[in-house]
């Protein structure tokens, strides 16, 4: 769909609702007001979409999940009584939608319990004796990290995104992912180890490219 055209379609309505506060929008949405639904969507969709995108690493799926999350939100908005912050409520709901989807889709191949078996030597990245360590601090940027996150196995990625990117605590993650706190910690640790490896590979590759570029410009 052409964004410029859809922008034209929604522009008029957006200006009408842009003055609405979140509390007003919630109250009106509870009465089925279309403008209020849109206001809530415009306020929060960027955050929800970013979360979905990082959790699944795929734009088409992230779009579907964003739609699902808001659909569920609007189905349940009548039950929102304001005990917690609306954004927290929505965020948790979005996480649940993503996790439910991922659970259905990836359970056979990425069981959380399976990949955290302490007996399984290949279950996580290991440090090698004598391996040279490149310090990442100051050398990595967000683009590198995002790419590395995309390469993580789904189980690692979910815990890492929830904890390190979205700021959930281990006990919350354990509740959301239906696993133990220990499992959550273990997955996070392995995710960080794997990310470290991936980022170090990136740094090495960048250094190689620089050397080659210097060589070719010298000759």
């Amino acid at each position: 769909m052409d964004a410029s055209r859809t922008g034209t379609v929604t522009r008029t309505r957006r200006t009408e609702t842009s003055e609405m506060t979140e509390a007003e929008a919630i109250r009106l949405a509870q009465q089925g007001d279309a403008g209020a639904f849109e206001r809530i969507y415009r306020l929060h969709s960027r955050r929800v979409y970013a979360l979905c995108l990082r959790m699944v690493g795929n734009t088409a799926e992230a779009e579907d999940l964003t739609q699902d999350a808001f659909l569920q939100l609007f189905r349940k908005i009548g039950t929102f009584r304001g005990e917690s912050a609306f954004s927290t409520w929505l965020h948790r709901l979005a996480v649940n939608v993503v996790l439910m989807k991922l659970r259905k889709k990836t359970l056979p191949e990425t069981s959380l319990e399976e990949s955290t078996d302490p007996e399984d030597e290949s279950s996580g990245p290991r440090r090698e004796i004598g391996a040279p360590d490149l310090l990442l601090s100051g050398s990595i940027d967000r683009v590198h990290l995002e790419r590395a996150i995309e390469q993580l196995p789904p189980g690692y990625r979910q815990v890492f995104v929830l904890h390190d990117v979205q700021g959930f605590e281990h006990n919350e993650i354990a509740g959301l992912m239906e696993c133990s706190i220990g499992n959550s910690k273990s997955q996070l640790h392995k995710a960080r180890m794997r990310l470290r490896e991936l980022l170090q590979e990136t740094l090495r590759s960048l250094a190689r490219q620089e050397r080659q570029a210097a060589k070719s410009s010298g000759s």
Binding site: E146, I149, F160, Q166
Partner: peptide
Amino acid sequence: MALELGNEEVAPPERVW
């Protein structure tokens, strides 16, 4: 770095709305 990523927002395409 991950915490910084958490503060970033990404606009979904209009077709989602």
